[in-house]
Amino acid sequence: MGHHQHSLAIFRGRLKFKSIEQKIWGVFIFLSIITIVEVAFGIIKPASLMSPFLSPFEGELFATFANIFLSPFIYMKPLNLIFIVLTIVKAYYITWDFMHMRDETKSLRRMVVWTAIFLICYLVLILLIEGDYIFEVYKNNYVKFDF
């Protein structure tokens, strides 16, 4: 086990630690700060972050593409976008530093991470589109649901 190399730097080498223990505590402080920020946002819910930044583009092909590529800013509350980004940041540091993914070979890392990310993104995409479609069907049909 002696020749295991641990990289001691996080934030792309901007923050270097002297020992592996110090790096662990550093990552813990970073994760705690993110969690505190999330909880604070969740309790305060700033009004400025509760409605989407952009409204959908009206028009032909280009507007459709713009709506697809900018969908996180058009159809999502900025607050939820912040939560999801912070969650992915937290997941990154748990995987890379606590699970030592940083010290594994590149091929193992890609095998695990890319497979999971591809399949999860695909599943989430089709299920959310389907869910939204059924919502529209319920909303626009002639059957009364609220009784």
Binding site: A116, I120, L127, Y138
Partner: peptide, 18 residues
């Protein structure tokens, strides 16, 4: 993938009754 199946199903139902 099992957990994301659960969470994606949660998202599906939530979008359905958003």
């Amino acid at each position: 993938l099992t957990f994301s199946g659960f969470l994606a199903a949660y998202g599906f139902s939530r979008f359905k009754f958003v």
